[in-house]
């Protein structure tokens, strides 16, 4: 069943929140090597959509299919193929960028490629690439918001999961960081990966499709 090509399909996906329909019967399909950017105003349900795909939200109707199977049926197998970067990136303020990245790596399953290629050297390389070479061992409390964000984005250098789901990865990152982000995403797509992301700004990524979610206005309650 898992031999089926890597595709992510959203079928008749509907979600309502606080009596408002965020999206209704959404149909989308992301194939291997392609990317989808979701945009829309604040409160249009972008984050909710990404959380549904990642399996963090369960209140929705319709189905999310990964390799032709419901993601909930895949369970751990799906999670091992998913790289998720949420709104809160999961950087511990008390730890250094190096420790944060190593911790993230050690959470990845031992069999996955992510940890196979990762040694102390590549962890350092990833952080240096994101301009944190001078503060590898500085606690993240002393880093700026943008630098903390970069420490989280450094995971992208090591992530070899097939599906990337990124929620506002470009927030608080400067133009150079965004360029790096674009290059990493393109490399991921060239490896045959899938990408689903939300950003407010335009990203220069080949093969990027866009959909817009609109803010629900009508209250369904009578």
């Amino acid at each position: 069943m898992s031999n089926q090509a890597a595709t992510l399909e959203l079928h008749a996906l509907s979600c309502e929140r606080d009596g408002r329909l965020l999206f209704d019967k959404l149909e989308q399909r992301i194939d291997s090597g392609t990317a989808l950017r979701v945009h829309g105003a604040n409160g249009s349900g972008k984050t909710t959509l990404l959380k549904i795909v990642a399996g963090l939200r369960s209140e929705f109707e319709g189905s999310v299919l990964w390799r032709g199977q419901r993601t909930s049926a895949f369970g751990q197998r799906f999670r091992s193929e998913l790289f998720f970067l949420g709104h809160c990136v999961g950087i511990k303020a008390a730890l250094t960028p190096r420790e944060n990245l190593q911790w993230w790596l050690s959470l990845q399953s031992s069999g996955s490629q992510a940890s196979a290629i990762a040694d102390g050297h590549s962890v350092e390389q990833a952080l240096i690439q994101f301009g944190l070479g001078g503060m590898l061992d500085t606690p993240c409390t002393r880093l700026s918001a943008g630098q903390q964000r970069r420490a989280a984005l450094a995971r992208l250098c090591l992530a070899r999961q097939a599906l990337w789901v990124l929620d506002e990865p470009a927030t608080a990152v400067d133009a150079e960081g965004i360029g790096l982000l674009e290059r990493l995403c393109e490399a991921h797509l060239q490896r045959g990966g899938l990408l689903l992301l939300t950003t407010h700004q335009q990203l220069q990524i080949n093969g990027l499709r866009e959909i817009e979610l609109s803010v629900p206005t009508a209250d369904l309650r009578r």
Binding site: A54, G55, L56
Partner: peptide, 15 residues
């Protein structure tokens, strides 16, 4: 929960 590590924890491949 606040810094997002909890999401990473629940989304990791292991049990």
């Amino acid at each position: 929960y606040v810094d997002g590590s909890l999401e990473q924890l629940l989304l990791m491949a292991g049990p």
